[in-house]
């Protein structure tokens, strides 16, 4: 056995070296903690925030957006209107696959510019089959191409939403008007909802979104298009910051063919009700029992 004091000394030296190496290894964390605030860390779940809490949170988000992105924005907590049940329908007979809806979504919802993210993916399908296996999203030619039809897919705001069910922390839920939302400040980023969604409707913020200040849409809501933090989930909200104020979704306004119909299911005179009652309507993957609020239909 070697001299115990020498051994202790060597152990001490080893421990010191190890601690120094550890400190060095975790050093990048300091950069991250700069971006974290105590209020942000302690912030409660959306449904537990009082009116005063919420106004403080909104003020903090506006301040942080100005600091980090250099843009003056207004973030509001826009609540659902009682008695309203939103639904969306899309006319596959007239959609030409121009992807202007996807582009409008990208701009309206303050998506990361580098990834060209959007909540809408447009599938080019071959006539004669509704099988998604025969579709492609990477088409790169003049549209509409002969023998093809086009099927934009976005969040179906399911009444029986698998994404809501699987969330371990209740960071995503269905609002009274049918819109499925995410509390970006509560989500832990486990991406279980992304695995559960059958429609590829959810997106993860793999990095901090980057948008030039002059391209930021300043008209923002807490549950929809405010710039999302890194490491959390996001999804289509039927543009609730617009639709809950009586406007139409950005994707609908951008559509050049009028393929999109949006409205209140609870209103018997609405166009959406007329479509559902008079057209040959179907939903995607009906067999999964998700009960979408997003419908497809054909004219002829």
């Amino acid at each position: 056995m070697s001299d115990p004091s020498r051994r202790t000394m060597l152990k001490g030296a080893g421990a010191t070296l190890g601690a120094a190496a550890f400190a060095r290894a975790v050093a990048p964390i300091t950069e991250w903690t700069n971006d974290l605030s105590v209020e942000g860390f302690l912030q409660k779940h959306y449904k537990e925030l009082t009116v005063e809490d919420m106004s403080a949170v909104l003020a903090r988000i506006e301040r942080e957006t100005e600091e980090q992105y250099g843009a003056k924005v207004s973030v509001e907590d826009v609540r659902p209107t009682p008695g309203v049940q939103f639904a969306y329908a899309l006319n596959l007979s007239v959609c030409i696959g121009c992807r202007r809806c996807a582009k409008a979504c990208h701009e309206e919802n303050n998506h990361d510019r580098a990834t060209n993210n959007s909540y809408i993916r447009v599938l080019e399908m071959t006539n004669g089959s509704l099988n998604l296996e025969h579709g492609t999203v990477t088409y790169d030619h003049a549209v509409p191409a002969p023998g093809k039809f086009y099927m934009p897919v976005q969040c179906h705001q399911c009444d029986n939403a698998p994404c809501v069910r699987v969330c371990p922390v209740e960071a995503t839920w269905k609002e009274s008007d049918g819109i499925v939302v995410v509390d970006y400040d509560w989500c832990i980023g486990c991406r279980y909802c992304e695995a559960a969604c059958p429609y590829h409707a959810r997106r993860f913020n793999w990095s901090k979104p980057e948008i030039p200040a002059d391209e930021i849409n300043p008209d923002q809501a807490y549950l929809s298009n405010r710039i999302r933090p890194q490491g959390v989930m996001e999804k289509c909200t039927f543009c609730l910051h617009r639709t809950r104020r009586g406007k139409l979704p950005a994707c609908l306004e951008a559509c050049p063919t009028g393929a999109r119909v949006f409205g209140n299911l609870a209103d018997p005179d609405s166009e959406i009700r007329w479509v559902l009652e008079n057209k040959r309507v179907f939903v995607l993957k009906e067999d999964l029992g998700t009960q979408p609020r997003f419908f497809y239909f054909f004219d002829e």
Binding site: F41, V166, V169, W186, C187, I188, R191, Y192, F204, N205
Partner: peptide, 30 residues
């Protein structure tokens, strides 16, 4: 491995029963 997978390690406390919001028994993750 779960901890390195989640996007917001700083929000881990959201998952602690009674302190955060624990979606039990519906979410299999809980």
């Amino acid at each position: 491995f779960v901890n390195v997978d989640i996007g917001r390690i700083d929000r881990l406390w959201h998952i602690i029963p009674f302190i955060g919001r624990f979606n039990f028994p519906v979410s299999m993750l809980t």
